[in-house]
């Protein structure tokens, strides 16, 4: 049940209209930079700097061709996709297991574990990046996607664990007892009874991790410094800017290739994005 204060009374048409129009104008300006880059990706260089209009004269698909093949964005796209998908699987499994025992069981050392996790909440990524870079070098996994994927999954926000723990702690205890009566062990109870119940949390955590992995910049830019082959999209566009800084339309196309998949995902799964984000302050 939602709580609302409707201080805009339905009867007060004028006030309602003014607020709506004000928000429409505000929204247009707000979204303009994103619309601008989308339209620029279909324009010629000359047209991009010609005016403020958003509708291209004709659709220049060659921009995307240049970005995808010429600037190697195709390869970076699949790198990013692999890192994102694998890190989501790792994160959901590991934090789900962790959240399950934290949420449902008490055992010696539990408080210490929680304490360790909480203390890492506000560790900035910049603080750990240099040793992570060194660690991957020493393990000989800094030159392929394995290292980057593991490191992406490794900086797990504690919020995922708390989301799982909170959800698991509310599952009625009878379900577990019934499973035990049927002879199901610890692992089977978790996989066949508990995990299917947590689909909403799995969805929320997955979405948050997709957002994190797809858009991450500091980690991939450092890890791929000497290895252009394993660049992600964000790093690819950044390098593009350095190498072909006069190809504006190609860069706009590369940008669109990077941001469009996430925006589409967001439009379809908005509910989970919102729940994940709000989880941080509700907890």
């Amino acid at each position: 049940m939602s709580k609302y204060l409707n201080f805009i009374a339905e009867k007060n048409q004028v006030k309602y209209l003014i607020i709506t129009i004000a928000f429409i104008i505000f929204s247009f300006f707000w979204i303009y930079p994103l619309l601008w880059v989308l339209s620029a990706s279909f324009k010629t260089d000359f047209e991009i700097w010609g005016g403020l209009g958003l509708i291209p004269d004709r659709l220049v698909w060659e921009n995307f061709e240049r970005a995808w093949f010429g600037a190697n964005m195709g390869r970076y796209f699949f790198n990013t996709l692999i890192i994102t998908v694998v890190s989501v699987i790792i994160v959901v499994v590991t934090t789900g297991m962790f959240g399950y025992v934290i949420g449902r069981y008490s055992f010696p050392g539990k408080k210490i574990l929680i304490g360790i996790l909480i203390s890492t909440i506000f560790i900035p990524q910049g603080y750990t990046i240099i040793p992570v870079f060194d660690l991957l070098n020493n393990l000989n996994i800094s030159k392929n996607l394995i290292g980057l994927t593991l490191a992406t999954a490794g900086h797990t926000p504690v919020i995922y664990i708390l989301l799982f723990a909170g959800y698991f702690s509310r599952v009625p205890v009878e379900l577990e007892e019934a499973a035990k009566m049927d002879g199901a062990g610890f692992v089977r109870t978790f996989i066949s009874i508990m995990l299917p119940l947590t689909k909403p949390v799995v969805a929320t955590v997955s979405i948050l991790q997709v957002l994190h992995a797809w858009n991450d910049f500091l980690l991939p830019v450092v890890i791929t410094l000497g290895n252009p082959d394993i660049r992600t999209l964000s790093v690819g566009v950044y390098a593009f800017k350095g190498e072909y800084f006069v190809d504006w339309s190609g860069m706009a196309a590369a940008s669109v290739i990077t941001i469009l998949p996430i925006i589409i995902l967001f439009l379809f799964m908005q509910k989970y994005f919102v729940e994940g984000v709000q989880g941080a302050v509700k907890g």
Binding site: N6, A9, F23, S27, S234, I262, F273
Partner: peptide, 27 residues
């Protein structure tokens, strides 16, 4: 406000930059 019919649309628009890759926004 529940009464504001377009509120969900405005929320989506204002949230849009959040899901956009930060490096791309910088560029």
């Amino acid at each position: 406000n529940q009464v504001l019919k377009l509120a969900p649309f405005f929320r989506t628009v204002i949230f849009m930059p959040v899901v956009t890759a930060i490096a791309i926004i910088g560029i």
